[in-house]
Write a protein that binds this DNA or RNA. Structure first.
Lengths: 348, 348
DNA sequence: TGTTAGCACTCAATTCTACCGAGTGCTAAC
DNA sequence: GTTAGCACTCGGTAGAATTGAGTGCTAACA
């Protein structure tokens, strides 16, 4: 995996007021038009009472300091990752529009179903709100206590182990015995499993029976199967919404392909989101996140907590020239509502 | 939904041998090169001892009869949907290559985990084998008998209803009571639910208790919740693999976007696959499947059965100029292996 | 010293033109 | 029925000319 450590976001020095204004104008304009921005455009749109020549000489400095770049000699300027970073760091928090606020409210007022369904639909919502691809991550239940476990017989050789965790998640594992098992034995094994496991977490050590009869063997197998899952953070879920937006956001077909290919690898996506969160960031721009194939992307994340501890995140993936203000506001609003949703009426 | 009935596939009349050869040559060449095919190319590649002029006059006929089309006057010919249809109908069954056969074998020899995992991974496999986007559909358990149902207390007001079906699937539904429920009451409700539901199918009528105590209310709610799911064919699962292949298969960014947008709507995909299967087809080309946005696509499907009755399908989605022979062979091989996998060692 | 008007210069993008050539349809001869 | 021959069509390409947005530099100005 071609990962590198995430760059310090605060490495952007401060710019004097006029340079900052010019940089901001360039970023805004470029986000709007997707075109290189010229000095005269900046002189016109920004409210600096300055001629284009002055803007030009400032731009030379900004370029030398790495905030702007020139695609070719006779073109305008384009923001670099560092330029976007400065812009984002100095962005005052945006607010979500009336209509969108309403849409979010309506959604959470009407959403039904299990956690998984809610997360999946939230992902679609976030994508619709922003026109970017959205990622919703629900963290695993590795640290949740087991509430109940049950062994169900499918046929003489096959049993299904169903486990319910305190966070409301349910897992199933099929077991294949090398001998025929009676219903009575399954019931007894189920009883013993409950006695052993209820209240424990997945990686806890439990005392399994050492006898060699059917029931004991079954119990041992069940516990082993269950514990084998613990390290893989089983239950970590990813919901990706609006992957078709990728085709809108990027122009090169090849770029689209690469981004889609990344999104297919859900583990990668989870670790990407997790990394960004671990660094305490809410936005990773261009090469900041260290994923080669995503250099032309920016990723916005907002954590979701349940009962105060982190238990997931919502994210947005767009081009580096994305509408940071709106997108960040939407992500924040949705993550807040999601947090509230799970803390509140519905139990997660 | 802009659906239309599927066209009869057998509406292609028969062509004389030479026309058939020419048509086939055009299709093969066009699939290979993505370019319009000229008469001289056909005269050269096909083993007809005929001049290009003869081919040309035959092509005029083929065009008049709707098998070929001309992008513009001075270009070669391109197959129409009808042309592809004839080609596919007269295609002798292809075989999968050595390496691919091996890859499939290895996959099914090593695949682990629950049905869902197997299906998801199968989808990825099929996509890798063919370089097309793959769809794996697992049909719901609406007709499966209930093996076990269990009510678990999350807290005083929230209970989780976990149901195991004979096909090995598990559902969960959370219930919210308007009153506090004790653990004893939950256990009793769970016991009663088992007595009521075990052995029934989802849409069966059962006699619920009419009393008004906590337990009876809980039981009623649980049954109602469960039965509310029956008509929605709950449990129908779609796994889409290799959506990034869409960006390779189609050139227009807009087409890519449209196809991705369709793939996002999983219900649509299921009904598409189902429709094609219902018509007894294994390939739907261009407008045959009646989905406007997918006119430039062909869809290949192959049914999967468990214990003899249909329980899913694998599918491939590519451009109309896809490699039918290879793709159909791969789909068939994978669906056969999948069928065997579920009938055999592992219980589904 | 910072700002600005003026100006020459650069270079991608656009337009125009000519032309090539793959491919066609037609016809006359075999 | 087949084919060689031929005039014709028209998309694609290559080159030249043009355009114009934008730059950097310089000299004058406040």
């Amino acid at each position: 995996m071609a990962r590198r450590s995430i760059r310090q976001p605060s490495s952007t020095d401060d710019l004097d007021a006029r340079k900052a204004t010019i940089l901001e104008a360039v970023v805004r304009e470029h986000i709007d038009t997707a075109q290189p921005v010229g000095s005269s455009a900046v002189a016109a749109t920004s409210h600096l009472a300055v001629s284009s020549a002055t803007v030009r000489s400032e731009m030379v400095t900004l370029e030398r300091e790495g905030y702007l770049a020139q695609p070719h000699t006779s073109a305008g300027r384009v923001p670099t990752d560092k330029g976007y970073r400065y812009f984002v760091d100095h962005l005052q928090a945006g607010v979500v529009g009336e209509a969108q606020q309403q849409q979010i409210k309506d959604f959470f007022a009407n959403v039904r179903g299990e956690v998984e369904d809610v997360l999946a639909q939230t992902s679609t919502l976030l994508s619709q709100l922003t026109s970017y691809t959205s990622v919703v991550v629900g963290t695993g239940h590795a640290q949740s206590a087991i509430l109940s476990t049950q062994l169900v017989s499918l046929d003489a050789r096959h049993q299904l182990l169903v486990t319910v965790f305190a966070d409301g998640s349910v897992t199933k594992h099929s077991l294949l015995s090398s001998f025929d098992v009676s219903h009575v034995e399954v019931a007894e094994a189920s009883r013993q499993l409950n006695a052993l496991l209820i209240g424990t977490v997945l990686d806890a050590r439990v005392q399994v029976p050492s006898r060699n009869d059917h029931v004991a063997t079954l119990v041992r197998e069940a516990v082993a199967t269950l514990h084998a899952q613990a390290p893989t953070l089983d239950g970590e879920q990813v919901f990706i919404g609006g992957s078709s937006k990728v085709a809108e956001a990027f122009d090169g077909v090849e770029t689209v392909r690469q981004v889609l290919a990344i999104l297919e690898q859900e583990l990668l996506v989870v670790s990407l989101v997790q990394d960004i969160l671990d660094q305490g960031l809410s936005v990773a721009i261009g090469s900041e996140h260290g994923f080669e194939p995503l250099v032309s992307c920016a990723v916005i994340v907002a954590p979701v907590t349940i009962d105060g501890h982190p238990s997931g995140a919502v994210g947005l993936l767009g081009p580096t020239r994305m509408k940071y203000s709106e997108a960040m506001a939407a992500a924040r609003a949705v993550s807040a509502q999601l947090t509230q949703h799970f803390d509140g009426d519905d139990r997660a």
